[in-house]
Design a protein around this nucleic acid. Structure first.
Lengths: 199, 199, 199, 199
DNA sequence: TATGAATGAGAATTCATTCAT
DNA sequence: TATGAATGAATTCTCATTCAT
């Protein structure tokens, strides 16, 4: 098989640019990021980026898009249906913690300010999140019905869980909080479930 | 003494500029904001801003600084000592919800991307928040001692509450979520305290 | 005589501004000089300068004008007619050297780049110099006639003397060359008169 | 190899910019010169200058640097050692006069106000000139030893010659003084050597 | 297809000058 | 008359994007 001197590098130039974009955008933010640095990071010429993306904005959006997809995929559990809400929330925390630790650059993008998103991406982003939240609320509702949990507003539970996910990102990614993912996930799940009530 | 038609206009030009800065920075973010627009918003000439602030960055930082101070001040409760943790958390949620509803532009700034903050401000900002969180953890510890709540890691409680505060901002400010502040605060406090355990 | 609290300062505000201008322009050059610094140096408000001069350019030109007048006046000898050319040149060097040592700031202006002079000042400046040089050449001619010196082109003698005057300014004013004025003037006069011919 | 119509245009864009800079800076001085005019003069876009020079100041300094080098090179004589001091001074005048006539724009730069030079360039400029002057004084000393000229202070001879060189620039470049270079150089050398003493 | 030199629109900032007090 | 806060024209420099090679 004749791949030539390019070796393994060839794995799709488009993806190489996206990978470089994750690094550079996460280092500097959208406005401070330079197309030149992205090109250099990808090991290609400046002009080449424009063969694959029409503009800096498009590149950013596609990169953000892809990054979120990767993140959301990491949260998926195979045999969801068979798990209790408690187990699902536990795996949500666990996956999130692990993902944050393993993809610091990428998460920086995912949980970022989205000022520069255009309407189309905003819609996609909004839809994706709303869809996730809707599914989550549905699961909360079912858990209430089957008496796994007490009668609470699913909206608030969703808010609580997503708030905790965001709040976890900073200490893990920025401060390098070094805890055992499984232990932390367990404790958080317990907090959510048992609340603060004295025994 | 005839101040006459000058009325409230005169209330210190520096403050007028800061107010305009809140509006414009919250509309566009730091990089997209134009000094000219800030000047126009303040109803003054472009050059005048530079009589009060040495640069765009300095203006942004001072504005952010002031805004945070205003926000944190709004969270203060007068006779803290006499309240139970439950009541304190309730007032925290209540103050936050009310503040978000009444200061949509300003909160956009307070809960924003901090990429452009310089080291000095970062420290101030960090200190302020860490101080708040430390005080909160202390209160959690005391509540545990006096058996108001069960034995939990104060760090996680802090994370839970601050996560909820951040998570509340988006629906209130962006989506215009229209709920009764007192009712919402009550529900959230209850969620935190009672958890999801079935009765 | 009631001069009031202003004391000796009152000696004409216009002149105070001109004096300040000499200092500031000689410190920074025309473009780098700031009207504010001139006002501060003169101990008055920025706006006041415009009560006496219509613009920065006018102030500069008037200052340059006055400075040159002072310089040229310092070169005048009372009873010129009775001196030999040798004595006149000696006194020219002597006056120049003494003036440079005593008025470092002012000479910096006098011997400066004149890019910013407008036509009117250029003409005045040119006229003044040409007039001086013409008078000098006339004196050279007379000295030739009365056989004080040999037959030389008066133009070249004028060039030689004025060249030496300029060349002296830098070491005296910038490097602080510290020689006895009378001795230096004597040596220079001798050089001009005796040339380099071996004895 | 078909270079064709590109002709001399291609002779290094950096040099084209430097040439344009000489013209524009000599026309207006440092502060009044506009980057846009330099670009236009070079027939390129404004931004292109910044591909070759980091700032206006750097461009000016490099241009000044190069110009001085060209000037000083023009003063060099091949077989210096074999000439008498009289001949050396003659060639100095001759070279200077010819250079001034042929490079009016460039000399305007070389003999200019140096307020805007930074310390580094000042040192280079100072070194170059001091070195030249030192060499010249040494040659005067040698001429004294071999009795070509009488015993005079070499410093003053140097001052005399350099003063004349500067004094020549204005009439030649500004007034367009049109004399035969060889004749003028001869006359000046004679003046320096024979002095004004009557025969 | 890949490149990077060239471009110019656009933004921050400066400072002489004005003018209400 | 004296002032200095306010102004905005004017200038440098940046960087996404283009396009000839």
């Amino acid at each position: 098989m004749a791949r030539g001197y390019e070796g393994e590098e060839k794995r799709d130039k488009r993806q190489m640019i996206l990978d470089a974009a994750v690094k550079v955008f996460s280092r500097h933010g959208y406005h401070e990021a330079r197309m030149e640095e992205i090109a250099a990071e990808a090991g290609i010429g400046k002009g080449t980026i424009y063969e694959y993306f029409t503009s800096k904005l498009e590149l950013f959006q596609e990169m953000l898009n892809k990054s979120r997809e990767v993140y959301y995929d990491s949260l998926e559990i195979d045999d969801k249906k068979k798990l209790s809400l408690r187990e699902k929330i536990y795996f949500l925390f666990l996956s999130h913690i692990q993902f944050c630790r393993e993809n610091k650059e990428l998460t920086r993008i995912v949980f970022w300010d989205t000022k520069i998103m255009d309407e189309e991406l905003k819609v996609w982003s909004y839809d994706k999140r709303k869809e996730k939240e809707k599914m989550f609320r549905e699961e909360v509702r079912e858990a209430i019905e089957r008496r796994e949990i007490r009668k609470v507003d699913p909206e608030l539970v969703s808010l609580n869980v997503s708030g905790l996910l965001s709040a976890l990102w900073a200490p893990i990614t920025l401060d390098g909080w070094d805890v055992d993912p499984e232990e932390l996930a367990e404790k958080l799940t317990d907090l959510i479930f048992a609340g603060l009530k004295p025994e």
